[in-house]
Design a binder for these strands. Structure first.
Length: 326
DNA sequence: GAAAATACCCGCCAGT
DNA sequence: GTACTGGCGGGTATTT
């Protein structure tokens, strides 16, 4: 997932989450939890979070709640990040006030984000035409049929395309919001936010791994979980399918199938993700040379590290270090 | 950036 | 008949 370039390191760091009648409280809660809570470890330069309603003062919300927004239309019009946290229904028309404000925000260069069904709102504005986007897998067919110009990527937890970001099902919104924090403040801060949420800083794989697949048998999942931890703790070593399959008493072919079912990606791709993730941490927190890091995390050479780092993050390791290293 | 060796990925199919 | 497993082989990706 390439790093966002639209937020300019949160220089204008107002984040507005749009609230609406029959609000999806979980999706809204994600945006407040990540952008709205105070982060003393970051200092004063954290996001300024507001909720803004385009549908009046008292709004019904999921769970029998009634909510009021604390922000104004002016906040919305000044925000550089605007989030649509879910939507009340795939068949619910998007009011003109929403499309007008979002199109206007887009024209002035705001970063626009949707979580789960919020993609229907962005699509109604035409913001997703010709762009890569995702939504909850159960809504995907409907979204694609109604808006055929969207390049729907179902095998992603979230997408970013030219300042327009979309996430898959509800909890993938957390992954997307952490990605935004990572883009604005770096991996260390994003990991710190993730730790407070008691979740992994960078979940791997797409929602394809959650689409009505049979749950792996528990003992198989345990064996493969052991493999994941084993690889993580020995990233600098070479790992071959043949050896790993032997360790968990599976044939290579079955190992490949089970691994993909569990992680959503082939072994090598998963290992590469882990290695590049570790690289980003080392770039931020150590003064090691690229060659040393490449050897530490098992990528062999500096050239190889550069290749895969750029492929995953969209920027060079040096640019990453310059941007985020303390 | 190109080339070669190596390993991986995955569709296919037969066996259980 | 169905589901799962494991071997084969061609195409692809990674590494040097």
């Amino acid at each position: 997932m390439p790093f966002s370039t639209s937020s300019k390191n949160a220089q204008n760091n107002t984040v507005v989450s749009i609230v609406y009648e029959n609000l999806c409280t979980f999706e809204f809660g994600i945006t407040h939890e990540i952008f709205g809570l105070k982060r003393p470890e970051v200092g004063a330069d954290w996001y300024r979070f507001k909720s803004v309603s385009l549908e009046g003062d008292k709004l019904a919300a999921a769970g029998g709640l009634t909510v009021s927004a604390n922000g104004t239309l002016t906040d919305l019009r000044r925000a550089n990040t605007i989030i649509v946290p879910g939507w009340r229904g795939a068949d619910e028309a998007v009011p003109k006030a929403f499309t007008d404000e979002l199109i206007r925000a887009r024209k002035r260069g705001a970063r626009i984000i949707s979580i789960c069904g919020g993609a229907f709102v962005l699509a109604a504005c035409g913001l997703l035409d010709g762009k890569r986007a995702t939504t909850h897998w159960r809504l995907a067919q409907q979204l694609q049929a109604r808006y055929p110009d969207i390049m729907l990527e179902l095998n992603q937890l979230y997408t970013e395309d030219d300042g327009i970001l979309t996430s898959a099902g509800s909890s993938a919104g957390i992954d997307l919001c952490l990605h935004v924090v990572r883009s604005d403040y770096g991996a260390s801060i994003a990991n710190s936010v993730a730790r407070r949420l008691v979740m992994h800083g960078h979940r791997l794989g797409g929602q394809a791994q959650y689409i009505e697949q049979p749950v792996p048998k528990i003992y198989e999942a345990d064996r493969l979980s052991w493999v994941l931890e084993h690889i993580r703790s020995t990233l600098g070593h070479t790992h071959h399918i043949s050896e790993l399959a032997k360790k968990v008493a599976m044939s290579e072919r079955t190992f490949q199938r089970r691994f993909r079912a569990l992680t959503g990606m082939p072994l090598l791709q998963w290992i590469l993700h882990e290695r590049i993730q570790r690289t980003s941490q080392l770039l931020e927190t150590s003064a090691s040379s690229l060659d040393e890091i490449a050897n530490t995390i098992g990528l062999g050479s500096e050239e190889n590290l550069r290749l895969h780092f750029r492929r995953q993050y969209g920027i060079s390791p040096k640019a990453f270090r310059d941007r985020f290293s303390k």
